[in-house]
Simulated assay, not measured.
Amino acid sequence: MMVIEGRQATESIKQWVYRTLRHAIMTGRFRPGHPLTINGLAEMLDVSAMPVREALQFLVADGAIELLDNRRVRVPLIDPDRFDEILSARIALETVAAERALAHIDFIRLAHLQHLDRLVDEAYGRGDIEGGIAANFDFHRCLYEARSSAVLLPLIESLWLRLGPFMRLAAENLHDHYLVDRHAEALEAIRTQDAAALKAAIAADIQDGAGDIGRAQFLETAAQEFAATHRS
Rank of each mutant, 00 (worst) to 15 (best):
P154F: 10
P32D: 05
A197Y: 12
L169H: 09
Q224D: 07
L143E: 03
H112W: 11
S158K: 14
I91K: 01
I78P: 09
A92T: 02
G63M: 12
D69K: 13
K199H: 12
R22G: 10
T20L: 01
K14A: 15
D208L: 08
F83G: 02
A171M: 15
A210S: 07
T192N: 03
R147Y: 08
V75F: 00
E157T: 09
C142S: 11
V60I: 15
I190T: 02
D62E: 08
L198P: 06
N39C: 11
D208T: 09
I108F: 11
N136C: 01
D128T: 03
L68D: 04
L68E: 07
Q114Y: 09
T95P: 08
L113V: 11
G211D: 00
D121Q: 14
S148K: 09
I202D: 01
K14P: 09
R7W: 12
R147T: 10
S158I: 06
G127N: 10
N39Q: 15
T10W: 08
G63W: 07
A92E: 15
A98G: 00
L152C: 09
E99D: 14
D69Y: 04
E172D: 02
D212Y: 09
A200S: 06
A42N: 13
R29L: 14
G6N: 00
M50T: 07
D62W: 07
H230L: 00
S12H: 05
E130I: 02
V96P: 06
I206N: 09
P32I: 03
N136G: 05
L110I: 03
R7C: 12
V52F: 05
D62M: 11
L198I: 00
A150T: 06
I133L: 07
L169W: 10
R71I: 12
Q207V: 13
I129S: 12
D117M: 13
W160R: 03
H112Q: 14
F107K: 10
M167H: 15
R7T: 03
A200F: 06
Q217D: 13
D194H: 12
I4G: 01
L161C: 01
K199C: 07
E94T: 09
F30W: 03
